[in-house]
C-alpha cells in the first residue's frame, strides 16, 4: 500500500501500549490493529485528531507516502 501507517514507531517513541492508545482514542484494539497493519481503507479525521492528541504528534508522523 502506498500509504504506510507508522503507529508502531510513534507508540515506541512515546512508550505507550496499543491498549492504552486504543482506550485514549476511544477505538477498539481490533480496529487499532487494522490501522497498524495497514488493512484500513480509510481513517476518519476525528480518529486521526484523537490519535495525534494522544501521541502528541502531527498526522505526518503517523502517515507516510511511499512509492509502490
Amino acid at each position: 500500500m502506498a500509504i504506510v501507517v507508522n503507529l508502531d514507531v510513534m507508540l515506541a517513541k512515546r512508550k505507550m501500549s496499543s491498549g492504552e492508545l486504543a482506550a485514549r482514542v476511544g477505538i477498539t484494539q481490533a480496529n487499532l490493529s487494522i490501522l497498524k497493519t495497514g488493512k484500513a481503507k480509510a481513517v476518519r479525521f476525528s480518529t486521526l485528531e484523537s490519535i495525534c492528541e494522544a501521541l502528541q504528534c502531527q498526522p505526518g508522523d503517523i502517515l507516510e507516502y511511499q512509492k509502490e
Binding site: I27, A40, K41, A42, T47
Partner: peptide
C-alpha cells in the same frame, strides 16, 4: 460495506 467496515 467492506470499505465502511475498514474505515477507522
Amino acid at each position: 460495506r467492506a470499505e465502511n467496515d475498514l474505515t477507522i
